[in-house]
Design a binder for these strands. Sequence first.
DNA 1: CCGCCCTTGTGAAAGGTTTCACAAACCAAG
DNA 2: CTTGGTTTGTGAAACCTTTCACAAGGGCGG
Lengths: 215, 215
Amino acid sequence: MSGRISDSTVRRLSLYLRMLRDLERAGVEFVSSSQLAEPSGATSAQVRKDLSHFGSFGKRGRGYSVDGLVRALEEILGLSRSWRLALVGVGKIGSALLGYGGLAARGFDVVAAFDVDEAKIGTRAHGLRIRPMRELRPAIAECGAEIGVVATPTEVAAEVAAELERAGVGAILNFAPIELSEVNGVPIRTVDIVLELEGLSYLMSEAGRRTGSDG
Amino acid sequence: MSGRISDSTVRRLSLYLRMLRDLERAGVEFVSSSQLAEPSGATSAQVRKDLSHFGSFGKRGRGYSVDGLVRALEEILGLSRSWRLALVGVGKIGSALLGYGGLAARGFDVVAAFDVDEAKIGTRAHGLRIRPMRELRPAIAECGAEIGVVATPTEVAAEVAAELERAGVGAILNFAPIELSEVNGVPIRTVDIVLELEGLSYLMSEAGRRTGSDG
DNA sequence: CCGCCCTTGTGAAAGGTTTCACAAACCAAG
DNA sequence: CTTGGTTTGTGAAACCTTTCACAAGGGCGG
């Protein structure tokens, strides 16, 4: 067991956990790998393999205890605690994030927000005072935010990410359409909507080319 | 050449195209696979392999013509035209999308917006009239939107996706934290922010466990 | 035209992920 | 206790993606 775990495995673990929480709320006690597989589009073997990287959680002939597996996955994914986010850039996307209750509900609290726009600085957005960029480092040190969120224009995204890393965050979530490179082992995930749309564009064009030429 | 192209290849092609457009704007005429590889974190061999699935675009000893490769990739990815999006759900995320100029700038125009909230219906958001759900099918037929965007609460996301599919869209972009299953060959991409954050949470916890126990 | 240097395009090798298939284990009923 | 039905955990096989390494081709200076 153990070793290096792939992104796709971790991704699926999150999906399993979601379903398990639903089952827990519904009062279900045991669940099988095939039931667990369904909503994430995985196979039962994949569920078992994914879990087996971390230990042995099931009972043969019976399945997995819902409660037990919820706790185990929360522990594995680091979700038995909550995380603090520092948001840089309170524009369209930044504001949407601040107003999105789904984050806090799942243990991700935005505890600080920064912007360069003098008109925004000092005002409050969803109960949070917007601070100038110059306060980024001391504020993050003070509030202990672990995750930095980059919601700035593309041009400054790399610079902001570097500044967040120097301020001591342990991970970065980036919304700018640019591939930021990990430094000092600080992992970065990029949410790139245009990239997703272009992926769909490819698939639709491809479908058109196929039906168009082959009949 | 050709065959089934992986998502990761298509993803990289988009990144190459981005860089190529920057180079084109800067007046550069030729580019090598290694230069092209750098910003997307790929290797030069990967760039060449990715492109080789679609044809032979380079000149040995010289590299790729920037203009030529821009046109070729636009053609491959279906980006030599523009696409029309129909947005369902004008809440936090939906509004942010409507206000985000980056979409239209890259050829993705939101041409229709729908919501269930009586208070929103009939009002305008960023120049677009918000329509009731009951108009979804005729409106999409009329305006010819190819891509449906689901920005609704999780509970209704699956139903909305099915309705979009019936209305005739060719692809769906989903922002609800739920794995929607493709039906009738209509591809679906999900942008799931919580999933990304949980992935970062895993990596940070993992890092902590390593340094915590091994020294 | 020749020779040198450079870069592509591509089989083959390596590396990684998913699926298969089955022994081992567990529960329940008799 | 034994038998039968069920489901896990896991090596092995199949599949897919990335990297390697090099022959083939192109440009340029002389």
